[in-house]
C-alpha cells in the first residue's frame, strides 16, 4: 500500500489531480460553512445586481444580486452528488452484466455484449440528451439519462477482466477444490478486477460532472434556483460580455473539477497498467 502511494506521489499530474479532488470534496462537504453568503442559493438582492468582483463579493454577483462565490461553493455538492449517483447506478448495472457475460459465456454473453456495443456506439451526450428530453427535464431525469448511457463502459471492462480471470489457473484450482460459482465470482474475480473499475469510475466522475453541466446549460438538468454550474453559465449568456465574471467562475469550477478527476484517473490507470506508462 505504501509502495502504491509512493509511486503515485512521484506522478506530478496525478498529485495535482488528487489535490484538486480533495479540495473539491472538502468544499462540497463543508459548503455552507465556507460560503460567505450561504443564503444566496435561493435569495435575491436586486439592489446589488451584476456587481464586478470586489472584496465583499470576490467573484462578483449575478443578475439577481446573488454572490457568485457562494453559489459556486454550494454548487460543488450538487455536482458531486450527481456524479456519484450516476457512476454508482452505472456500476450497479454494468458490473453484474459484465460478470455474467464474462463468466457464463455462450449466447447470453453474446446478447449482453452486443447490446453493450450498440449503446457504446451512440455518442454519450446525444443519447443522454435524447433520454432527458423524453423524460421531463429535471435533475433526476438527467441523472437517469447519464446512468443509462454510462454503464456500458463498466460492462466492457468487467467483461474483459472476467474473461481473463475465468480462464486463469487460480480459478481452475478453486473449481478443483469445489468452490461454488458465487464464491469464485464475488470473492475472487471481482476483487481482482477492482483496479480497472476504480480507474474507470474516477474518470467517469469527471466526465459525468461535465455532461451534467452541459445538460444543465441546455436546460435539461438542474432547474432554477439550484446553484448548478452549468445552469449558471446558461443564465449568464444574456449579460455577456459585460458581466464576464458571471460565466467565468462557474466555468472555471467545472474545468478544474473535471481536470482534477481526469488527472487522478489517468494517474491511477498508469499505476494499474505499467505497460501504458512505459509506452509514453
Amino acid at each position: 500500500m505504501s509502495l502504491i502511494l509512493r509511486k503515485l506521489t512521484r506522478d506530478v499530474p496525478a498529485v495535482i489531480g488528487l489535490t484538486i479532488v480533495i479540495i473539491v470534496l472538502i468544499i462540497a462537504i463543508l459548503g455552507p460553512l465556507l460560503a460567505p453568503y450561504p443564503g444566496d442559493v435561493a435569495a435575491s438582492h436586486l439592489t446589488r445586481r451584476l456587481k464586478p468582483p470586489s472584496w465583499a463579493y470576490p467573484f462578483g454577483t449575478d443578475n439577481l444580486g446573488r454572490d457568485i462565490l457562494s453559489r459556486v461553493i454550494m454548487g460543488a455538492r450538487g455536482a458531486l452528488m450527481v456524479a456519484m449517483t450516476v457512476v454508482s447506478i452505472a456500476m450497479a448495472i454494468g458490473i453484474p452484466l459484465g460478470l455474467i457475460a464474462g463468466y457464463r459465456g455462450g449466447w447470453l454473453s453474446e446478447v449482453i455484449m452486443r447490446v453493450t456495443d450498440a449503446v457504446l456506439a451512440i455518442p454519450q451526450l446525444v443519447l443522454a440528451l435524447a433520454l432527458a428530453q423524453l423524460l421531463t427535464p429535471s435533475l433526476e431525469s438527467a441523472m437517469l439519462a447519464l446512468s443509462l448511457t454510462y454503464w456500458p463502459f463498466f460492462t466492457r471492462i468487467v467483461f474483459a477482466e472476467t474473461r481473463r480471470l475465468t480462464s486463469s489457473l487460480f480459478v481452475d484450482a478453486l473449481r478443483g477444490i469445489g468452490a461454488g460459482t458465487a464464491r469464485i465470482v464475488f470473492l475472487h474475480i471481482l476483487p481482482n478486477a477492482a483496479s480497472p473499475i476504480i480507474v474507470r469510475a474516477t474518470i467517469g466522475l469527471g466526465f459525468t460532472i461535465l455532461v451534467a453541466a452541459v445538460l444543465g446549460f441546455l436546460g435539461m438538468g438542474a432547474t432554477p434556483p439550484a446553484p448548478d454550474w452549468g445552469l449558471s453559465i446558461a443564465e449568464s449568456r444574456t449579460y455577456l460580455p459585460a458581466a464576464w465574471w458571471y460565466a467565468t467562475f462557474p466555468g472555471l469550477a467545472i474545468l478544474l473539477t473535471v481536470m482534477g478527476f481526469n488527472l487522478l484517473g489517468d494517474g491511477l490507470r498508469d499505476l494499474v497498467d505499467p505497460r501504458l506508462r512505459r509506452s509514453r
Partner: peptide
C-alpha cells in the same frame, strides 16, 4: 485433489496464504 504445475498462478494474488488455505476447509 490436483496440485497445479504453476503454483504461483494457482493462488489468488489478492488473498493471503492463510485465507486461501482456510477457504478450502470452509468449502469442505
Amino acid at each position: 485433489q490436483y496440485v497445479h504445475q504453476d503454483a504461483a498462478a494457482a493462488l489468488d494474488p489478492w488473498w493471503s496464504i492463510g485465507r486461501t488455505l482456510r477457504e478450502g476447509l470452509l468449502i469442505h
